[in-house]
């Protein structure tokens, strides 16, 4: 095996085209090895850790699938209505699923609307594009800190809200019923601009002939939008829903910077973080991570299948 491989390598180097290929692979080797070590290896090592009990300081102890059993017990306990103090992982899943169900459709619809507006040929359109996109290039923690201020009882948001709906001035960040909604609003505001740019690119790549044909047939603006634009945008919608769902299920930064009272804004990743660093249960935290990975994988896979069937 070795000599044949060696002679092959030699002949590989002798041919110019092969040499180019090798050079190419060597050039990407740096990046690839970083990914191999910091993503692939770290992931595999976390999987390995999920079968151990470890608290950073004392030696690791092999416990088999015990950590996974604990994860399922906690979820089962949560389904049976157990104490919120014992079922924070379950609460995290519940919060994050609700959060995803609201944020993903809203931000996608909003992004399409914004993109359609930004696609108009009106004066000063760049200004609007830039303003929609600005939140995406701002650090989410800083955004969260500003919004914590805006969401105060006597803050700007309540000032406008109470003028529109008299008497409606919730104490957003201090009320268990509103805290998660406040985070959702920030998330939608922050990501729609980013998605808008993707949708704008997709809109500008749409074939113009179809629209021209529709105009000849006498289709109006709304008909064109619902019967041409939306169907043609389907692959892009599928992409943004999948990417948005993955992002939402892993939400951490906003919940960390805008904490609500009690468990109202606990997310799965936050609970994993607390399990790992506040309770020093590294193995259990890794098991929870892989459970989350399985959930995300399943949802993404189901979505991909759905969108593939619909687009073909």
């Amino acid at each position: 095996m070795t000599p044949s491989l060696f002679s092959n390598l030699k002949s590989l180097f002798e041919k110019k085209s092969r040499r180019e290929a090798i050079e190419g692979y060597l050039l990407i080797a740096a990046g690839t090895s970083v990914i191999l070590f910091f993503s692939i290896f770290v992931m595999l090592y976390a999987f390995y850790l999920s079968f151990f009990s470890w608290d950073f300081l004392t030696p690791m102890k092999f416990v088999g699938v015990e950590n996974y059993v604990k994860v399922f017990e906690e979820i089962w306990d949560g389904i049976c209505g157990g104490s919120p103090f014992r079922t924070q992982f379950f609460i995290g899943i519940k919060n994050v699923l609700f959060y995803t169900a609201i944020v993903v459709p809203t931000q996608t619809i909003l992004a399409i609307i914004l993109a359609v507006f930004a696609n108009q040929k009106i004066k000063g359109i760049s200004f609007y594009k830039v303003s929609y996109f600005l939140p995406s290039v701002t650090c989410s923690v800083i955004i969260a800190l500003i919004f914590v201020w805006l969401f105060q009882k006597e803050g700007l948001i309540n000032y406008f809200l109470s003028s529109m709906i008299p008497g409606f001035a919730p104490n957003w960040m201090r009320d268990v019923h509103y805290a998660l909604w406040a985070i959702m609003l920030v998330a939608i505001w922050g990501t729609s601009g980013n998605l808008m740019i993707s949708f704008l690119a997709a809109l500008q790549a749409l074939p113009q002939e179809v629209y021209e044909a529709a105009s000849i047939d006498g289709a109006g603006r709304f008909k064109k939008f619902f019967y041409i634009t939306l169907p043609l945008l389907k692959p892009m919608i599928g992409y943004s829903v999948v990417v948005g769902t993955i992002g939402c299920l892993q939400m951490f930064d906003l919940a960390y910077a805008m904490p609500g009272p009690g468990f109202s804004t606990t997310t799965v990743v936050q609970n994993i973080y607390n399990t790992c660093f506040a309770e020093s249960k590294v193995g259990l935290a890794c098991a929870k991570s892989f459970f989350l990975f399985a959930v995300i994988f399943a949802i993404t896979y189901a979505m991909r299948r759905k969108f593939r069937y619909e687009t073909t």
């Binding site: 044949s4 491989l5 092959n8 390598l9 590989l12 290929a21 090798i22 692979y25």
Partner: peptide
């Protein structure tokens, strides 16, 4: 015979 692709994969 080892193909080009296999060689590259082996290196990787």
């Amino acid at each position: 015979m080892v193909t080009k692709m296999e060689s590259i994969l082996a290196i990787l």
